[in-house]
Structures are given as structure tokens and as C-alpha cells.
């Protein structure tokens, strides 16, 4: 019984060690810069939209 308990304690200690190290390692990853300027982040002019005139898709070249 004692032996079994010892084994269990050892395996629990090892698991928690791995998890702790794993978590610590995670926080050393380098995240991308949060200061990029995304073109879509500015508000879009919805109300004015769709009165723009698009170029041709498949209409004669002449």
C-alpha cells in the first residue's frame, strides 16, 4: 500500500512539474505586434456606399 502511494505521489509530482514548466514556457512565446494598422479597422462609409461605379467585368473592350 505504501509503495503504491509513493508511486502515485511521484507520478503526480512529475506531472505537475511538466505542466508548470509548460505553462511558463508558453508565456515566453513572442506575440505579433499589436500596433499594426489594419485597413478594415477604420469605420466603413456604409451610407455612401454602392453609389460608386465599378469597372467593367465582362463588357466589350471597344
Amino acid at each position: 500500500m505504501n509503495k503504491l502511494l509513493k508511486k502515485l505521489l511521484v507520478s503526480l509530482t512529475v506531472t505537475s512539474f511538466i505542466l508548470t514548466v509548460g505553462l511558463l514556457v508558453n508565456d515566453h512565446e513572442r506575440f505579433p505586434d499589436s500596433h499594426e494598422r489594419f485597413p478594415d479597422s477604420s469605420p466603413t462609409n456604409y451610407l455612401a456606399n454602392d453609389h460608386e461605379r465599378f469597372p467593367d467585368s465582362s463588357i466589350s473592350n471597344t
Binding site: 485597413p39 477604420s42 462609409n45 456606399n49 460608386e52 465599378f54
Partner: peptide
């Protein structure tokens, strides 16, 4: 022209 419209749409 299309690029112009796209840039216009993002102000």
C-alpha cells in the same frame, strides 16, 4: 479604379 473604390471605402 477598383483599388480606388476599396481605399475610398475604408475612408
Amino acid at each position: 479604379v477598383l483599388l480606388g473604390i476599396n481605399f475610398f471605402r475604408i475612408l
